[in-house]
Design a protein around this nucleic acid. Structure first.
Ligand code: ZN
Ligand code: ZN
Ligand code: ZN
Ligand code: ZN
Lengths: 340, 340
DNA sequence: GCGCCCTTATCGCAATCGGT
DNA sequence: ACCGATTGCGATAAGGGCGC
């Protein structure tokens, strides 16, 4: 009668494979009977009972972690606000804030050390098994990667898997409604974003980094208020960064050393970004109401000598629309060779 | 026993819906039994039998037409070669050539009047049901549009139909092999291409029209020898042109008046181009070996002040690859608002 | 919430067809 | 008989929806 007997009694819930197939699960052995018939091995016939429990219990701490990350984001923002130096010793104010939730963010798993953000985007409707609770988007994403039904796809898909599109319900040709939040939900978690963004701007010097950084901070503040075009640009930047081979020695930058194993990020983010790229590239073309960002951004290199007089003239003649600037920026990024 | 009795004999092939579902088709009535069971109406249960036959029978004359068009292409090329005027009265040589296959290309259906080209691209392996014969790609495309299995899709699809991709076997994420010919097979027939190209360059003045015209002629000469990136650019140009609303009065251009009803072209080309756009936009991102075109092209407007010194410098530092120029060109086109 | 019955949809592939 | 194209069986997957 005790519910925790580890004996030969059947496990509390069906195996994952059977749940996905919606078929009866014998719930014995590690390859259950249905899975055995299906030719699946022990690695495919898994149960999530204890995982679910632990996840349920630990999701509180996950939220806690993300809230802590949010704090650090605000610190960073404030620091940027008071002092334009990237990371100056703006001791006072920062330390004050830091006292709010000092926490133990140090150690070998330096996941969080890389400037978190976006960790405050989450929604409320995620309720694992009955409870309603705040669920940051980053957590959603991470759990998807970690133990979601598409886990295998993420980790060992090196070739193009076209069917992943609908597998993950990514609207490749969105009709303009709900697209922003969809794209947000696709975004990798904040620490990945920040890492990849840094990688990009350390490697390429086409976009005006300071301008983008400002926009990025604005995005961290209020992720739902950026334009779709800017999101698309962000996706492109991340995609480029994810493909850039990691240099062995870290840059001679005074910022925090990038101790995150790039390989790990790459594995996790790669497929998501591939989808996002396709989306970002297709969406504006399908629906011209995308890419509505207004303010232009300075470019360097071939695109830097931007002449506004002719641009304005042409804009009024109907040749350009206001999206030109942003698509151009995205394009400048795309043009990098992606080593694969 | 006669095979041509129109009586209660079964139609030669199953209905399209059944073929797609791979289920037995009763081949009676317009909603066949399977389709009736599925709740599909007559508009979904279609047959292509007689269309296929007619296409098979008429393909000879189609080839003939396309060969004639090829002649005119060569005439046009030669005229351009001898005289850089767009259409000057280069009487002698042209008339000599024109005598080769004078033909009756005049009349109300001025399909062919608009500078044909690409009509010589075809392949030999197209054997509708046994015969091996020369099959120009344009013919393939036209017959697809006119009476192919996807005919309805082409004519009444105003919204996005995502499933068309695999319906037409367009490799949205091609792996780089066979892509060029695939894109060529997607291209609208020559007269459509020329018309749309003209529309584009009459309306927009971003790309250097003379340079592009030269490349276009090169493309007409040897369509298989252009780079994928250039093809993508062409697709984008055509896509823009197809969406541009047709002005009521034709331009004050001394070239042949554009008497082709734009609406017709639009209907036929629209979906193909939508697919091609998606392809052209996705492919280079999926496979960095795309967009390999070398020679840069002058731009006007915002992109005109191209600085080669910095470009070269950056190229060598690995920041740009040689595809930059072309993607930029494509992007400049994309940035137009597409009125839809 | 979850398990899973039972109706559809999918599609590999072997039988079949039809032209030569 | 050969051979590429086509058909459609039948094994399998997907998933709507109901009872708990
Ligand atoms: Zn099972
Ligand atoms: Zn199992
Ligand atoms: Zn049928
Ligand atoms: Zn039918």
């Amino acid at each position: 009668m005790a519910s925790s007997g580890p004996k030969g009694k059947r496990l509390p819930i069906s195996c994952l494979a059977c749940r996905k197939r919606k078929i009866k699960c014998s719930r014995d052995g590690r390859p259950c009977q249905a899975c055995t018939r299906r030719g699946l091995g022990a690695e495919d016939c898994t149960y999530i009972s204890e995982l679910r429990l632990s996840a349920e219990r630990s999701s509180n701490s996950v939220v806690e972690t993300e809230l802590r990350a949010r704090i650090r984001t605000l610190e960073e923002l404030l620091r940027k606000q008071m002092n334009l130096q990237p990371v100056g010793p703006t001791a006072d104010t920062v330390s004050t804030l830091r006292g709010t939730s000092a926490g133990d963010f140090s150690g070998p798993e330096t996941w969080d050390i890389l400037g978190p953000m976006l960790d405050n985007v989450g929604t409320l409707h995620m309720s694992p098994s009955g409870h309603i609770r705040y669920m940051p988007l980053a957590s959603q994403w991470k759990s998807l990667v970690a133990n979601g039904p598409a886990a295998e796809y993420f980790l060992n898909s090196d070739s193009d898997t076209a069917e992943d599109d609908d597998y993950l319900q990514i609207p490749l040709a969105g009709n303009g409604s709900g697209t922003r939040s969809e794209m947000l939900s696709i975004l990798p978690p904040g620490w990945h974003c920040a890492t990849l963004k840094d990688v990009y701007f350390k490697s390429f010097h086409i976009l005006h980094d300071l301008t983008f950084e400002a926009e990025y901070q604005r995005f961290c503040h209020d992720p739902h208020n950026v334009s779709i075009s800017w999101l698309a640009l962000l996706f492109v930047i991340l995609a480029i960064a994810i493909y850039k081979p990691q240099p062995q020695s870290h840059q001679d930058d005074t910022r925090k050393p990038m101790s995150i194993p790039m390989k790990v990020i790459r594995d996790q983010v790669c497929l998501k970004l591939r989808l996002a790229r396709a989306f970002a590239l297709t969406a504006p073309f399908t629906n011209p109401s995308f890419f509505p960002l207004k303010q232009p951004v300075n470019h360097e290199g071939t695109l830097s000598t931007h002449r506004h007089s002719s641009s304005d003239e042409q804009r009024h003649s109907g040749i350009y629309d206001e999206s030109f600037e942003n698509v151009t920026r995205a394009l400048a990024c795309i043009s990098h060779r992606l080593p694969s």
